[in-house]
Computed example of a mutant assay.
Amino acid sequence: MELPLVVGVDGSDSSFEAVDWAADEAARHGLPLRLLYASLWERYEGVRPSFSTGRPSEEVMAENIVASCVERARRRTPELKVSGEVLPDDAVSVLLNAGHASFALVTGSRGRGELAGLLLGSVGLTVAGRAVCPVVVVRGGQRNRQGSYGRVVVGVGDSPEGSEAVRFAFDEARTRGCALHAVRAWRRPAREHAGDAAGADEESASALLTESLRDAVRDHPGVELHRQVVEGTAHRVLLDASTAADLIVVGAERRHGLFGLQLGRAAHTLLHHAECPVAVVPQRD
């Protein structure tokens, strides 16, 4: 059974952008697309006056939003299998539950009614920090969202928590038929006369990058790979790389028994500031 690509919709402009991006992504992977609207109105139906015969306005609105998003996806990719559903729960719970049987979860960068000053909506941030499957937050300019640069970027760190992210990024580059840029940041030693040490640190970073990519390179022989070792902090280096990328991929470790947000600084920064869609891929222990 094919796992669907799941999109959270709420009628905001940001969620419409997420639907467009997800429709293209589902078509590339040959996956069904499932659109979910989270609504709590059903929980309170029992408290409506017994003489009320009309349908709750929230129900009508939810169904209209889902129907319009389904139609939008079908117009964009007519061959796509698309379904829509309204579920009686909060948005975070709906998406996290759906994530157990999804190829990936997709959200917009800001929900309907959220303050314009917020960098990332609370739903997208929480889902990215807790989901058991990859989460893509669709953000950035139109060229980035439409895949105009022909480039997927993956951030490669020190720990094995990035191996699933690396594999996901290779799969994306292969499916899109584009280049993959694997980026590793390194820091110059904060001491005087550290020229030799800096060179050694850069060489060590390069060797670790090659080792981290070894298995995925073997399994994806057709992917055009560019290795980049860049001096600087990981969050700054990856943020710069996002400006000319169609997708940037980072890993996040999921520790058993922990329920809070499990995002490193680089992932957190990208989710708030990246110039392209961001995929957060969990590495479970």
Rank of each mutant, 00 (worst) to 15 (best):
Val94Ala: 14
Val166Met: 00
Gly117Asp: 12
Glu2Ser: 14
Arg75Glu: 15
Leu33Arg: 12
Ala185Leu: 06
Leu238Met: 02
Tyr44Met: 14
Leu40Arg: 15
Ser206Leu: 09
Tyr44Asn: 13
Ser159Tyr: 02
Val280Pro: 03
Arg112Val: 12
Val60Asn: 05
Gly111Met: 04
Val237Gln: 01
Val127Ile: 09
Val230Glu: 02
Tyr149Asp: 10
Val86Trp: 03
Thr243Gln: 08
Leu238Tyr: 04
His29Gly: 10
Asp215Ala: 14
Tyr37Lys: 14
Ser68Leu: 03
Thr233Cys: 01
Ser52Asp: 13
Ala104Tyr: 05
Arg214Met: 06
Asp219Asn: 11
Ser83Met: 13
Arg187Asp: 15
Ala116Trp: 06
Arg151Ala: 07
Trp21Leu: 06
Arg167Ala: 13
Cys276Lys: 02
Asp219Ser: 13
Tyr149His: 15
Val166His: 04
Val7Asp: 05
Ser204Tyr: 11
Asp240Met: 00
His100Asp: 11
Ala245Val: 03
Val183Asp: 01
Glu161Asn: 10
Trp186Tyr: 10
Leu239Phe: 04
Arg284Lys: 12
Ser15His: 05
Leu119His: 14
Val66Ala: 08
Arg72His: 15
Arg254Cys: 04
Ser206Met: 10
Arg43Gly: 10
Cys133His: 06
Pro32Leu: 03
Ala198Trp: 10
Glu164Trp: 06
Tyr149Ile: 04
Ile248Lys: 03
Ala205Thr: 11
Val154Asp: 07
Gly11Trp: 04
Asp215Met: 03
Glu79Arg: 15
Leu120Ser: 02
Pro134Leu: 08
Val70Cys: 07
Val82His: 08
Leu118Phe: 01
Thr107Gly: 06
Asn97Tyr: 09
Ala245Ile: 02
Val281Asp: 04
Arg55Leu: 09
Val127Pro: 02
Leu105Thr: 05
Arg130Ser: 11
Met61Val: 13
Pro4Met: 11
Cys178Glu: 13
Thr77Arg: 15
Arg43Met: 12
Phe259Ile: 08
Ala98Pro: 08
Ser159Ile: 00
Ser57Asp: 13
Gly113Lys: 08
Val153Gly: 08
Leu213Ile: 04
Leu213Arg: 02
Val136Cys: 02
Arg74Val: 12
Glu17Asn: 13
Arg139Ala: 01
Glu17Trp: 08
Ala198Arg: 14
Phe168Thr: 02
Val152Trp: 00
Ser242His: 09
Leu209Asn: 07
Pro49Ile: 11
Ile248Pro: 05
Gly195Tyr: 11
His181Asn: 13
Trp21Ala: 09
Ala26Ile: 00
Cys276Gln: 12
Arg28Leu: 15
Leu33Ala: 12
Arg74Lys: 15
Ala245Gln: 02
Pro282Met: 08
Thr243Asn: 01
Gly99Gln: 09
Leu261Glu: 14
Trp41Lys: 03
Ala182Tyr: 04
Ala244Met: 09
Arg112Cys: 01
Glu2Trp: 02
Ala116Pro: 11
Ala101His: 14
Pro78Phe: 01
